[in-house]
């Protein structure tokens, strides 16, 4: 029995070796290197000496009003976009979880915004909201006379923020839709029938049957989408320069000001923040018995 265990261990180690090696090479090394860089004032030229600055990069970042502001905007953007895209995805999935004509074609159309490359969508939105020839201003001013003067959508920080949130909700809700639809199809219809016999209303059926059934998927979607949106860069950067989320702040620190040490320390701080969020959400999943 003992020998069997030993030979199993040997085989396990051989089989694990490639993955462990790749994890060390592709995850551990860059991570350790990044943490190391965050304690240095690092010149771009590797032949010049890096200066050890201790925690200066961290204190500079944490006392920078722009960073705090940027973090606040990012958190708000993340909460609104995650809540919006998840709720919309769930609503559409519930609506689609029944037989109707052209269901397959309709499903394919729904996921279009998710599978189209960001750059095409961003340009479409920019043209739609263009101050001079955008269709939104044309409808709002010339056709329906909703505004006297065409609003400068992407020039105002508040309207820009609302638009980037709406863009994220519209772009990412199909992901939630697909996941919810998959799990909704596994829910036994007898549960709804039993609830109906007990006299449950639509809201009560949703609360007592649907929500518990989709909880594991719901938590996973919220966790993943939060991580992805927290690190968002492309969509917002391409749409407007009036919404300074953390991804843009990090990019500018690294590549506009060439401050690699500070940029590394920002990524470490973000990593810590996100780790806390993930650990908290994992505990919540375990609490629900699905961890």
């Amino acid at each position: 029995m003992k020998n069997r265990g030993k030979s199993d261990m040997k085989l396990a180690m051989v089989l694990l070796f490639p993955s462990v090696f790749l994890v060390l090479l592709l995850v551990a090394y860059p991570m350790i290197s990044n943490i190391k860089i965050s304690f240095f004032d690092l010149p771009i030229n590797p032949r010049l000496d890096a200066t050890f600055v201790g925690l200066k990069n961290y204190t500079d970042i944490l006392t920078d009003v722009e960073f705090i502001k940027s973090l606040g905007i990012t958190v708000l953007y993340m909460i609104l976009a995650v809540a919006g895209s998840t709720a919309l995805g769930l609503a559409v999935a519930i609506f689609f979880n029944r037989p109707f004509k052209f269901r397959k074609a309709a499903r394919s159309l729904i996921i279009l915004s998710y599978v189209t490359p960001s750059i095409s969508l961003v340009f479409a939105w920019k043209y739609m909201f263009n101050n001079g020839y955008g269709v939104i201003n044309h409808l709002g001013v010339d056709v329906f006379h909703l505004f006297d003067k065409a609003p400068l959508w992407f020039d105002n920080p508040v309207s820009s923020f609302i638009l980037v949130v709406l863009f994220a909700i519209w772009r990412y809700f199909p992901y939630a839709f697909i996941s919810f639809l998959a799990i909704l199809q596994t829910v036994d219809s007898s549960l709804y029938e039993a609830a109906e016999i007990d006299g449950a209303s639509t809201w009560e059926k949703f609360k007592s049957v649907t929500i518990p059934a989709i909880m594991p998927v719901l938590i996973t979607i919220i966790t993943l989408r939060s991580i992805w949106l927290f690190y968002m860069f492309t969509d917002v950067y391409l749409l407007t320069n009036k919404v300074n989320i953390i991804g843009i702040y990090l990019y500018e620190t690294a590549f506009a000001f060439n401050d690699l040490g500070k940029a590394a320390s920002i990524s470490v701080i973000l990593f810590i923040i996100l780790s806390i969020v993930i650990i908290a959400s994992r505990k919540r999943v375990k609490f629900n018995g699905n961890g």
């Binding site: 263009n130 101050n131 003067k149 992407f154 020039d155």
Partner: peptide, 14 residues
């Protein structure tokens, strides 16, 4: 000039 933030595309198109 045209209202809003004019970049290369807007200026050239105009």
């Amino acid at each position: 000039t045209m209202p809003g933030s004019n970049d290369t595309t807007e200026v050239k198109d105009a």
